[in-house]
């Protein structure tokens, strides 16, 4: 083993250089490719991410079809089957679980040390975290489209424009949920604590939303739960996706999702900044970086 620099003598320390736009793109592409490769290498992760919503669609929705009637509410122009109603919610479910899974992967990466290779990159940390977020969202969107393709055979067939319009809605909702996951990952010291995220974040967010039943029905049965649903960011992600799937833009949810995305993303960037963030405080207690 005889090491030399790759092609020539290592030069004298270079003067201040900074990075150009092309190098930023190279870095972003590298992070996206790595996340994509990890996803493809973990086929069970892909399958399990589809099994969960498909079970809801095939089993839960089929069972509740006769119990729960859905009246004509926007964006639907006619009565729709319960399977059709919960499909946008199940798309949101995929984004929610995937966002949290990317948070799990960051806790795992921190514990295993892989995260260190990212954090010691000379690119600005905000850029690295946003790139990591985009990679997580890209994987989530692939899962949603795979789910919608299967749902098409189950007679869930939105207009073809919906398949295009849903893309920006999925992207925004995915960014919001992945940012939330990243913010949570900065607060979790060890992998074992992720079970708490499941019980205290994922399930409450999912069930206290219009993913499974319309908001007006929730209001009728429990005004308090209705207020909780209105305070839940996931509610607006589901509504944004639901309208987009039928070729419409619902501006209220759109603005709220953008607002929460900025809030969570800003929080995650601050949390991962070693000089001011939660991670910096965590080091005081001997936590991993």
């Amino acid at each position: 083993m005889t090491l030399q620099s790759a092609t020539s003598r290592i030069p004298e320390p270079a003067p201040r250089q900074g990075f150009g736009a092309r190098q930023y793109l190279v870095c972003l592409k590298g992070i996206l490719v790595r996340e994509g490769l990890r996803f493809l290498n973990q086929r069970e992760r892909f399958v399990s991410s589809l099994v969960r919503p498909l079970l809801w669609l095939f089993v839960f929705a089929a069972g509740f079809r006769q119990v729960l009637g859905v009246s004509i509410i926007p964006p639907y122009k006619t009565y729709v089957l319960y399977e059709v109603f919960i499909t946008p919610g199940l798309c949101g479910m995929i984004l929610l679980f995937s966002g949290m899974q990317s948070s799990l992967s960051m806790v795992y990466d921190r514990e295993m040390g892989n995260m260190r290779t990212l954090l010691v990159s000379p690119f600005p940390r905000w850029f690295l975290l946003i790139s990591k977020l985009l990679a997580g969202v890209m994987v989530s969107i692939m899962q949603v489209y795979a789910f919608l393709a299967i749902a098409w055979f189950w007679d869930v067939r939105p207009p073809w424009t919906g398949y295009l319009m849903i893309l920006p809605a999925l992207f925004l909702s995915g960014m919001m949920l992945c940012s939330l996951g990243m913010l949570l990952s900065s607060m979790i010291k060890q992998l074992e604590n992720f079970a708490g995220v499941m019980n205290f974040v994922i399930f409450p967010m999912y069930f206290a939303s219009p993913a499974l039943y319309p908001l007006w029905r929730i209001q009728e049965s429990s005004p308090l739960l209705h207020k909780i649903c209105l305070a839940n960011p996931f509610t607006y992600a589901v509504e944004l996706i639901r309208f987009a799937l039928y070729g419409e833009v619902d501006r209220g949810p759109l603005l709220i999702v953008v607002g929460f995305t900025v809030l969570f993303l800003g929080g995650a960037i601050l949390a991962y900044d070693p000089s001011i963030g939660l991670l910096g405080r965590k080091q005081d207690n001997g936590g991993n970086a």
Binding site: F19, R22, C27, K29, G30, I31, R34, S121, P122, L128
Partner: peptide, 14 residues
């Protein structure tokens, strides 16, 4: 793939 990932984290093209 591991080494390429590191190279991209330093802005080095493929």
């Amino acid at each position: 793939q591991n080494l390429s990932y590191h190279a991209s984290l330093h802005g080095i093209g493929r």
